[in-house]
Computed example of a mutant assay.
Amino acid sequence: MRMLLFLFALLCLLAPARNGFFDEKCSKLNGRCVDSCQKNEELVALCQKSLKCCLTLQPCWTNIND
C-alpha cells in the first residue's frame, strides 16, 4: 500500500513537468507543435488542435574569404 501511495505521489509531482521529447512533432520530426513560434522559428505547417508547426531557422553563413 505504501508503494502505491508513493507511486501516485511521484506521478502527481511529475505530471506538470513538460519535456520536449513528449511534445507533438511535425515537418518530418524536425519541427514542433506549439501555440506560437519563437523569434528564431518559422511557421511551416499546421498541427492538430489548431497548433502551429514551428521549425528552427538555420543561419545563412557567408564565407568572408570569397
Score class of each variant (00 low, 15 high):
45 A>M: 07
11 L>M: 14
54 C>A: 03
13 L>S: 05
42 E>K: 14
10 L>T: 07
55 L>W: 07
34 V>W: 02
59 P>T: 01
47 C>T: 03
16 P>E: 01
42 E>R: 14
9 A>I: 12
52 K>N: 14
2 R>M: 05
25 K>W: 05
46 L>N: 15
33 C>H: 04
53 C>K: 01
56 T>D: 06
56 T>S: 10
63 N>P: 01
29 L>R: 14
39 K>Q: 10
41 E>S: 11
51 L>A: 11
39 K>N: 08
3 M>L: 09
53 C>T: 05
62 T>S: 02
58 Q>T: 04
42 E>T: 13
40 N>E: 09
12 C>Q: 07
24 E>H: 07
12 C>N: 09
38 Q>K: 13
23 D>A: 10
34 V>H: 02
4 L>A: 11
28 K>D: 08
51 L>D: 09
30 N>W: 14
7 L>T: 10
37 C>N: 09
62 T>M: 01
40 N>K: 05
39 K>F: 08
35 D>Y: 11
54 C>P: 02
63 N>Q: 09
38 Q>Y: 13
57 L>V: 11
42 E>F: 06
11 L>Y: 04
19 N>K: 08
16 P>V: 04
1 M>V: 04
64 I>K: 10
48 Q>V: 00
33 C>G: 06
32 R>F: 06
43 L>V: 13
15 A>K: 13
44 V>C: 04
3 M>I: 12
20 G>A: 12
2 R>S: 08
2 R>P: 00
59 P>W: 03
40 N>L: 03
6 F>W: 01
62 T>A: 00
42 E>P: 00
9 A>S: 14
57 L>K: 15
37 C>D: 09
19 N>V: 10
30 N>I: 13
37 C>R: 08
42 E>A: 10
47 C>L: 05
8 F>H: 03
45 A>V: 02
6 F>D: 02
47 C>Q: 06
44 V>D: 02
27 S>C: 13
17 A>E: 02
45 A>C: 03
40 N>Y: 01
3 M>G: 00
48 Q>N: 02
36 S>Q: 11
29 L>W: 08
44 V>S: 04
55 L>Y: 12
6 F>G: 02
66 D>R: 07
44 V>R: 13
55 L>A: 07
10 L>F: 14
41 E>A: 09
4 L>Q: 08
6 F>T: 07
44 V>P: 01
18 R>F: 09
8 F>P: 01
21 F>N: 11
46 L>H: 15
16 P>M: 05
24 E>G: 04
38 Q>T: 13
12 C>G: 11
41 E>M: 15
58 Q>Y: 00
50 S>Y: 03
47 C>G: 05
